[in-house]
């Protein structure tokens, strides 16, 4: 569906079901340079099981209008504005990679609005490889190729997509190339590189938090994910074996299973 935040059009997938304000809201926040489509194997489940779902395209990404936001802090405030714009007071947030930084910062800045955090491939900081950053800011498609290489584990490189017929690396690459690379990936990478408040924000988070990490994640290794999780009071950690950074697609079923259990426990649908 489309709606406006600060007069700029926003696109969000509702998981194939009509958006219903009576249902609890889960917001999914994608990673650097990507779009709402990375969440297709999680969102549709929740949309068909009693939740209202918004898998957002960040400003300047995917089908959303406007320019990419230049800092994680701006993105965090924007998520808070999205919650208000769609008529809600609170939501549960799910993030991947850069999206984890965004939702941690959002929970830190707007604690009353956020009910749970689900972090996939998250870390307290995501310093960028300088060459990768430079390639992305210079609009070089090699930045996408490198990201797809590093972001995927065996399933991405060999195959075995949970959806028959889809090939991970080319699909991810096409998503990242769907808009001008320097304006999406370049801006996002710089925002990640500049963001320094992750660990401090984590210490202040008092809501149920789940970290899903992958043993083969080269971009946000398990060690970094655990370092962040250790700072969040009572946070839960799940590790998926033989999987890379794109766990939400590479091992979609395992991710959904863990996420379902966490959300249904900590942010259940209230039955009348």
């Amino acid at each position: 569906m489309k709606f406006k935040v600060n007069d700029v059009e926003v696109f969000a997938s509702t998981g194939g079901r009509p958006f219903d304000k009576k249902k609890p809201l889960i917001i999914f926040v994608h990673g650097s340079g990507l779009t709402h489509m990375t969440w297709v194997l999680q969102t549709r489940y929740f949309a068909f099981h009693g939740y209202s779902v918004l898998a957002l395209d960040l400003p300047g990404h995917g089908l959303s209008g406007g320019q990419s936001l230049k800092s994680i802090e701006e993105m965090a405030d924007w998520i808070s504005e999205v919650i208000e714009a769609v008529g809600y007071k609170e939501a549960s947030l799910v993030g991947h990679s850069q999206g984890c930084l965004v939702i941690i910062e959002c929970a830190f800045r707007h604690p009353k609005k956020i009910k749970t955090l689900s972090l996939m491939g998250g870390a307290g900081a995501i310093p960028m490889n300088p060459e990768l950053l430079s390639l992305a800011e210079n609009n070089d498609t090699k930045a996408v190729d490198l990201m797809m290489d590093w972001a995927h584990g065996p399933a991405g490189h060999f195959g075995g997509h949970p959806v028959p017929g889809l090939y991970h690396i080319n699909t991810g690459g096409m998503l990242a190339k769907s808009r001008t690379i320097k304006n999406t990936l370049g801006v996002d990478f710089r925002a990640c590189d500049n963001y320094k408040n992750g660990f401090e924000a984590a210490k202040k988070i008092k809501i149920p938090t789940l970290s899903i990490l992958a043993s083969g994640d080269k971009m946000c290794p398990v060690k970094e994910g655990k370092k962040l999780a250790d700072l969040i009071e009572g946070s839960q950690v799940e590790i998926i074996d033989n999987c890379g950074h794109m766990m939400l697609l590479e091992e979609a079923d395992q991710v959904l299973k863990v996420l379902k259990k966490f959300i249904l426990t900590n942010f259940p649908v209230q039955k009348n």
């Binding site: 549709r44 068909f48 195959g159 075995g160 959806v163 028959p164 979609a252 079923d253 959904l256």
Partner: peptide
Amino acid sequence: NLERGGHIYSRISNPTVAVLEE
């Protein structure tokens, strides 16, 4: 509902055929 990937019936998809497709 296409909530999850997977196979239902080999007219629609099949694991061996899916390897070829990928």
